[in-house]
Design a protein around this nucleic acid. Structure first.
Lengths: 151, 151
DNA sequence: ATAATTTAAGTGTATATACACTTTTATTAT
DNA sequence: ATAATAAAAGTGTATATACACTTAAATTAT
């Protein structure tokens, strides 16, 4: 009989403070705050930046396709896109298959991205140097593997 | 003059798909989904589990103290706590300093945690084995350093 | 002793997230 | 050809997140 849940976890051989989920969530929150703050002058959040980027790199995409590519729940993407559509960052048009809708970046979206890229790059470089470039090269592979395995 | 924001980023020497923020956010989403799903039988979310754990390990805490410890915005914690208070997982009482409020876990909270710990442990072990235990030992340090640096 | 400042916490508002469920359209089986 | 099934997307609802601002109490400066 252990005193509390923390002791119980230690007993099982795991320290809850070392939880992968906890640590990733914490880092995710802090990173999001910093990137959102840096991107403020561009009018984009890091969420929006991340959604627009593949639309730039790969062209128009179906909603499910973009959701899959971005590892985001489709219904979450729908909600995020409606904000972006209202702000004129994307246009959503019917696809050939009448079930589908296709997302494309607008002129305004491209303009915002053009302003955002240098700011994103500076933040990213700064984070990379904190993390150690070579460390991240290895870590990123592990993280992507983890994502692939879990979902 | 580059074709689009993706090319623009590549030109600057950074691949947006390798963005630390993006990758952490993706992993965070997937991990949260999996842990929330696994914890469902206990009635706790991983957010709630993570808030209750330090209350078990360290005892009652002021709101700001818990927010700081958990690397979560204080105003976010306030909102999360009101859900948990409504569900009877925590009790919030006035502190000696009349500005402060102190959060403490309830009997129900402890009971839920007791049920949750083995499930959390199993998930955590499974994630660890995917990630490679030794990898995570190193990674975790880097992640915590990054958090400390950024915030 | 009182004014100025700092600290702790809550509230208004908005985005971000995702599950359960529904609707519409396409595909497959019979 | 039609019924059954699968695929794509939206909606209801709820938690999670955080910024800007406010309120109340304690501390510090004068």
């Amino acid at each position: 009989m252990v005193a509390n849940a923390y002791e119980q976890a230690i007993e099982l051989g795991s320290d809850p403070r070392e939880c992968v989920c906890l640590n990733f969530r914490q880092a995710s929150r802090v990173l999001t705050q910093k990137f959102d703050d840096a991107l403020k002058p561009t009018g984009l959040t890091i969420t929006q930046f991340s959604m627009l980027m593949p639309l730039e790199g790969k062209g128009p995409m179906r909603i499910s396709e973009l959701a899959d590519f971005q590892v985001i729940e489709r219904t979450t993407l729908t909600r995020n896109l409606s904000v972006m559509e209202r702000e004129g960052l994307v246009k959503i048009v019917p696809g050939d298959d009448k079930r589908t809708r296709v997302v494309q970046i607008t002129g305004k979206g491209r303009k915002c991205m053009q302003a955002a890229v240098p700011i994103w790059n500076e933040m990213h470089q700064s984070v990379l140097s904190q993390l150690g470039n070579s460390n991240w090269d290895g870590m990123r592979g592990e993280v992507q593997d983890l994502i692939r395995t879990l979902r």
